[in-house]
């Protein structure tokens, strides 16, 4: 991602970096940028800010339509809270293992980084597996994608989240593989941290979905 054009320009002191700018972000191996912050991390945070509006739109659509299930099953009849609680817990714990991966990478302990990345990916897959099971069960209980507004908006929202988790799992596994083959050049810790940011964001979205969709009675 970082075909940075300029490397030999020292950073300008700048008034936009909110004080302690330069001693953060530009860790070892990062580029000297005008703000002292890493291009990659800045880009990732911008992307996550943008994702807020994507999920905001999907969640609002669901909230608007959750009560409109016609003759099909509604949220109260169909949700399996114990199952979803377990998978929420799994995803939450995957955030912890992700943090441990990032910390290991910062210590340049890449064996442990890899270990934690793979465990995170496994927990993520477990979550996706739970979602697939849940979707199948709902379908057999009469809630399809086309059944009702509730069905369409529920599957769209949780499906989008599930796709995000799946992409995250692929990125985690690829990263672990590339790290073990020595194919990640540059600042390895920053790459792990960036994928970590994405992963935590996906987790945080689920924190909201779990409460708004599953737990709050409609």
């Amino acid at each position: 991602m970082s075909d940075i054009a300029v490397h030999d320009v020292p950073p300008a002191h700048d008034d936009t970096t909110a004080g302690h700018g330069a001693d953060h972000g530009a860790g070892h191996g990062a580029h000297a940028t005008a703000t002292g912050l890493s291009n990659n991390k800045l880009a990732m945070w911008l992307f996550l800010g943008s994702e807020c509006l994507l999920f905001g739109g999907l969640i609002s659509t669901y909230m608007l339509y959750r009560g409109r299930h016609g003759r099909g099953p509604g949220p109260d009849q169909i949700f399996d809270i114990p199952l979803t609680s377990v998978s929420s817990f799994v995803l939450l714990m995957s955030s912890l293992t992700m943090v441990l991966a990032v910390n290991s990478a910062k210590r340049e302990d890449y064996r442990n980084t890899n270990l934690w990345l793979v465990i995170t990916a496994l927990l993520g897959s477990l979550f996706v597996g739970g979602q697939v099971y849940e979707f199948t069960a709902f379908y057999h209980e009469g809630l399809g994608f086309t059944t009702s507004l509730f069905g369409s908006s529920f599957f769209t929202l949780t499906g989008f989240h599930g796709v995000h988790v799946t992409i995250g799992v692929i990125m985690l596994l690829s990263l672990a593989l590339m790290l073990s083959r020595g194919r990640v050049t540059g600042d390895k810790a920053e790459v792990v941290e960036m994928i970590g940011l994405y992963w935590h964001f996906v987790d945080v979205v689920w924190v909201i979905i779990f409460t708004l969709v599953y737990l709050i009675p409609s």
């Binding site: 991602m1 970082s2 030999d8 990659n40 990640v184 790459v191 960036m194 994928i195």
Partner: peptide, 11 residues
């Protein structure tokens, strides 16, 4: 000054 290794290409 700092190292300018910049070959990382992940995303």
């Amino acid at each position: 000054g700092e190292s300018t290794k910049e070959l990382a290409s992940i995303v």
